[in-house]
Amino acid sequence: MLRKLAVGGLKNRWKDYLILLSGLIISSAIFYLFETLATNSRFLQANGEVVSFTGYIFNFGSILLMLITFVYLNYANNFLLNMRKHDYGLFMMLGAKKKKIGQLVWVETILIGILSTIIGIALGILASSFVPRLLTKLLGITPKYYEPFWGKAILWTALLYLGLFLLGAILNTIVMVRKPALKLLKSEQTVSKSFMPWYLQLLQALVGILLLVAGYWVISNANVLKQSTIPASLITLTLGSYFLFNASIIVIIDFLRKSRLAKKKIEYFYVGAAKI
């Protein structure tokens, strides 16, 4: 029964989950792709300086990707949580013990995690089989020792994603178990507003834009910072995007909701999903 409830929840709202899942799959596939390049030292050494420098960049790339994944997973997890609040609230009202609720949340989150990681890695293997051709085309070399099916990359991707999902599952369990049933049940009816005052929002937007400009400037003038170009751009670009996104998302979504598109309900779901 417990399993049926967890799987039933997934089956029932598969359209919502599809969007969540596809995002996670793509993100883990890209991460895998990066790792096949960054962790294959034999490939990096055997193909001359251009490639080994590329490997250096890819190392930073995977760190950047890890950060993005972390933020994305955070959003995805919130989304998952919000989708299921109502049902969990109902279970509590019907007399489910906290332990049972905890088990349900746990099973669901981990299930999504395992599913998206496995499919993501499979997709990543498929995508990385095109890498040699791409390198030949872009850099004019025939790469040696490149392996689309690379154990280390599989290991790292699985470790990162399952680790993050484990973290998510723990957090979700804590959140669900602590909230009162009535609040969970009625959560769909209450609209979450942005609690950030407008001046903080504006400040965030400005800082975000400033960081983004600085980041791109550093990249396009690589001779200024030389070796530190990549780490510097990494930090500025990530933080910049995050701030700008954080500051503008609510404004944009409110605008979308009021627009004609939203009234036609075409984008209703996407907008709702993004708001979470």
């Binding site: 019907l94 007399g95 013990k97 906290k98």
Partner: peptide, 9 residues
């Protein structure tokens, strides 16, 4: 906690 859950159930 569990007492409340049992009571509801």
């Amino acid at each position: 906690g569990d007492q409340l859950a049992d009571f509801r159930a």
